[in-house]
Design a protein around this nucleic acid. Structure first.
Lengths: 226, 226
DNA sequence: TGCATACTTCGTTTATTATCAAAGTGTGAA
DNA sequence: TTCACACTTTGATAATAAACGAAGTATGCA
């Protein structure tokens, strides 16, 4: 039984996957395929093996399937192995998405740490009304209307899209809500157009630019300690 | 690097070897081949791999080559893995030589825990003289002469053998001395003839019999807590 | 010296496993 | 319903590695 587990860890592509997940974040099959440097189909087989051995767990959310470490026991074992390997622990392979790439897109809106921070800040500023309801839907306060319009977002057109306007979308890997719906989509569009963030890797991860850092502070009063 | 280590642990025969060594004792290539359920040549390849990866260390002593875990780091990693596997730790495979088989032959005399206990007891009883010298040689006191003769050992013939009479032979796996030389050989011969011990596995390990347990107490005052 | 024992190295066969492309499944958005 | 996307399953190929016997090395003992 131990041998099955150890050999599951021991295959190089699978080792890269596990050590990438060691930061506690959940990642999709596609992201992990890039990290593991194998094709999506190969990664899928590896992920299935790791799941069967109980090393990782899977949460399906819509189109995406999020993989993460199964528990602290797994992290402990990986740590013990890296000590054996003489690696000063936490030293991942170069092309692992680091904590710096802390923003991700969730479908077409912004998730990840950055998305959560923005959501919380907008709520604190009193721009959102609601959110506690059954479907977590938001509407905008007068301040909110003014703010988003001033960012160049056409709220009238946004409301007319055949889509929920705004709601608290749970990014389960952060276990915190971010802004979903048509408004979330427009915010991401604006952020990318203004080059506050730039796409990265498989275009599901985002990096904060220097400009973005400045503008976040100026417009919303958010300081990112990246 | 981690993947090399994990896959070294992951092969079933190698896993058996490592978990057998987890009790801290050193074992020979032949013993480990039996534990791993592979041929001596295959075991040799596995042991070499484990040594290269830094998981076990090797001490050559005469004809024998003793393998043991390289350090506590290795034991920690193995423990972390067995927790992952849901094994309540320390639960080894059935045919692992257990602590019960605590006696071993060293060439033709008795080593292991039992050998050490006998050596220490004989010394405490004042049957041995010397042992502190350059070559750890022992001679016998009057009490010693009487005792071994009464066991049926022909000391005159033993002394005439073209071999050192008696000396403190270091069983490094116990880090304690036992009785080497012609006398050690005679003691083992007697112990086997009287069926205090019986050979086991590859005939390098011995099991204490019920009779042996009784006789050890009666003749030497040794209590084995097996 | 010669013989036995302990162990390793070599060479070959066999079994396992990782790999990818192509086809298939399921979901979200228009 | 359509398309696009995320991901998985399948099947065939290629690489890896474990197994053993036979031969080789080294040591102890007589």
């Amino acid at each position: 039984m131990v041998s099955r587990i150890a050999s599951a860890i021991g295959e190089p592509a699978r080792t890269r996957i596990l050590y990438c997940l060691l930061d506690g974040h959940a990642r999709t099959s596609t992201e992990l395929a890039i990290v593991a440097e194998v094709s999506p189909s190969t990664a899928s087989v590896h992920l299935n093996r790791l799941r069967i051995e109980g090393l990782i767990k899977l949460v399906a959310q819509g189109k995406h399937r999020y993989y993460s470490l199964a528990g602290t026991n797994v992290a402990r074992a990986l740590e013990a192995l890296s000590i054996l390997a003489g690696q000063p622990r936490g030293k991942f392979t170069p092309n692992t998405p680091s904590e710096l790439r802390f923003a991700r897109t969730c479908y077409d809106h912004m998730a990840g740490t950055a998305g959560v921070l923005l959501h919380n800040r907008f709520k604190d500023l009193g721009w959102f009304i609601g959110g506690a309801g059954k479907d977590n839907s938001y509407s905008l306060s007068h301040d909110g209307e003014m703010a988003f319009e001033s960012l160049g977002i056409d709220l009238k057109a946004t409301r007319e899209r055949r889509r929920r306007f705004a709601y608290a979308c749970l990014d389960w890997s952060e276990r915190q809500p971010h802004i979903g719906g048509a408004l979330g989509s427009e915010i991401l569009k604006t952020a990318l157009k203004r080059q506050w963030f730039e796409p990265d890797l498989d275009s599901r991860t985002l990096s904060l630019t220097m400009l973005g850092k400045r503008e976040m502070l100026r417009l919303f009063g958010i300081t990112f300690n990246v």
